[in-house]
Nucleic acid binder design. Structure first.
Lengths: 340, 340
DNA sequence: CTGAAAGCGCTAACAT
DNA sequence: ATGTTAGCGCTTTCAG
């Protein structure tokens, strides 16, 4: 238990004035004489007075705290989004409580409950990979708590969200493969119920069509989003009678796994198999060969999500539903530079 | 602004009983008749009652919140320590507010102030790379707020801390280099005032001595802890008349930078120059060649720091000062396997 | 067995 | 220009 911080009462007692006088003096209320004002402010400074946020929160019914639920804190992708959120939110004097669903639906539900109990003023969520039902977000509507989704989203007609243009991005990657000579372009996709999976598949197919390539169901494999699932998915592709000559991984974790597995099987990257990832994890440029990747504007994504949330906490009355779509950029490195 | 959550008062009004009765019923106070108890609890459940933490906090003078200050949220090293902290702390029903010093002393000071204003019950800190004065931690002593340091520490006789055995680890790395044939073993160290720098240098020198190698001042270069500083430090080593045949990087960021720079200059790893990093960032095994690294038990470090803090928040009276030293393990991969 | 009252720290009418 | 009071949601004496 820590020492009791100084309260208005303490200051009041010391100066033989009332608590309300102190309260007013500290906010330069015109009613208080300048001299008293100064005296009180000096003492407050001296004693390191800072208003008790619990008392303020109780009074104003607000905590200046928001909650964030990510599938996993450790991945660079999420931690840099969190950083982007923090950046904006702290400017508004808000604090961030971060929780992790560990890619589990059950845990995601628990996170929501915990954050509500904590009385956060808003929540920013990226769905867990397991999340295929969405009714647990009803409570937020019921309690009129602003909710912003990012990246992996749902119920986008009811809640604001920030995503990238997944369709376009996937289309570009596919075309890039074609343009550099690949013809059997495979895609390791994520769990089927996620928007990022669906949209990237859509873009992938769109890209194939534009290049005049047929869609080959065998070249599309679904995978969970962790490293070892990526390895298994890659093995499936490599065990085909006719293996692919390009692999588009739904994210960089999958792409890293694919690279390792492809190399382990003695294939050359990009000569035999070109590889492109998605998200541009910090380390994409360190691996060998450097991994081409779709740059995911993580910082901007965090910033935007936080900005939307801050707006909604202010003008609570009119919920200005918004969908922000950020654009991505394909960074071509060696892993996909077949012709260069 | 969110909807007002149900309060005890609301429940009381609905059942025509007093607030205190409701309060007691919810904690199964023996004074309340079983039937009333049940009725009240059912209603509370139905209405989704959850106690207002602000009111409780105000009353009990505690927030069930702790603060964490890391040099940077984005690095895998820190995010996994945060994860370790979260794990333990959430079991105790505590929340974590994460702040980042961005490796800046000024920002670190501001973080402390903010967290104090928020009335956190304890703080866990890893010093910023700039931090070479330590008086800003006095406030915590003054206010009797538990403080735990991890990894980059100071004032270890006054505050508990969790570190790894840096001396021993550096000694092992140095010996490993010698055992695999290296004789001009360089060390890229961190800022001189940090304990991790000092201890690892100590271990490095100790290792050299044990191997009968002289300490060559030119082979020890100090560097800031970011990637581009690591590149510069490596350039310095590579521009020597007689270049080193092994480089021990103070952390994996530096080691990654060294690898890139060494390769860029046409040297072979490990044949020309062996490299070992420190911390085992997730991606150490993805780079080419896979980077040997001293495994830093990040999860355990987070767990331990949190455990110490939780203990101290409970038994505040007697501050049980502790120094936990975790052991590390050298993972030998290709980047240092000269003779194998 | 249940209710009334005080108090945690603060603000904002409402007095004086 | 300053003090008094009530109330934010909750627990805990103290009275019945």
């Amino acid at each position: 238990m820590s020492k009791k911080p100084v309260s208005l009462k303490d200051l009041a007692k010391e100066l033989n004035v009332s608590v309300s006088t102190v309260s007013r003096a500290l906010k330069n209320h015109p009613d208080i004489s300048a001299s008293l004002c100064k005296k009180i402010q000096d003492l407050a400074q001296l004693k390191n007075y800072s208003p008790n946020p619990l008392a303020m929160g109780l009074l104003r019914r607000q905590t200046r705290t928001i909650g964030v639920i990510v599938p996993d804190i450790v991945t660079h992708f999420y931690s840099s989004i969190i950083y982007g959120i923090e950046e904006v939110v702290s400017e508004h004097g808000y604090y961030v409580v971060i929780t992790s669903s560990n890619e589990s639906l059950e845990k995601e539900k628990r996170c929501i409950k915990n954050l509500l109990n904590l009385r956060v003023e808003g929540i920013i969520v990226c769905l867990s990979q397991e999340t295929n039902t969405f009714s647990h977000f009803d409570v937020l509507h019921d309690n009129e708590i602003p909710l912003i989704f990012f990246d992996r989203v749902c119920r986008t007609d009811e809640f604001s969200s920030v995503i990238v243009d997944n369709i376009e991005a996937a289309r570009q990657i596919t075309k890039h493969f074609f343009d550099t000579g690949s013809r059997r372009i495979a895609h390791i996709a994520g769990p089927p119920h996620l928007n990022i999976t669906q949209d990237r598949i859509k873009g992938y197919k769109q890209g194939l069509a534009e290049c005049g390539l047929p869609f080959t169901p065998d070249l599309l494999v679904y995978s969970k989003l962790d490293h070892s699932s990526g390895t298994i998915a890659t093995q499936k592709l490599l065990s085909m009678k006719q293996i692919p000559d390009a692999i588009f991984g739904v994210n960089d974790t999958i792409a890293f796994a694919a690279m390792q597995e492809v190399k382990r099987n003695g294939y050359k990257i990009p000569e035999d198999i070109a590889i492109v990832g998605f998200a541009d994890e910090l380390h994409a440029s360190y691996v060998e060969p450097p991994l081409s990747s779709m740059i995911h504007p993580t910082l901007a994504m965090g910033n935007q999500a936080a900005k939307l949330l801050m707006e909604q906490t202010k003008n609570s009355n009119s919920f200005p539903m918004q969908q922000v779509i950020l654009s991505t950029e394909l960074i071509i490195r060696k892993s996909s530079s077949k012709l260069f």
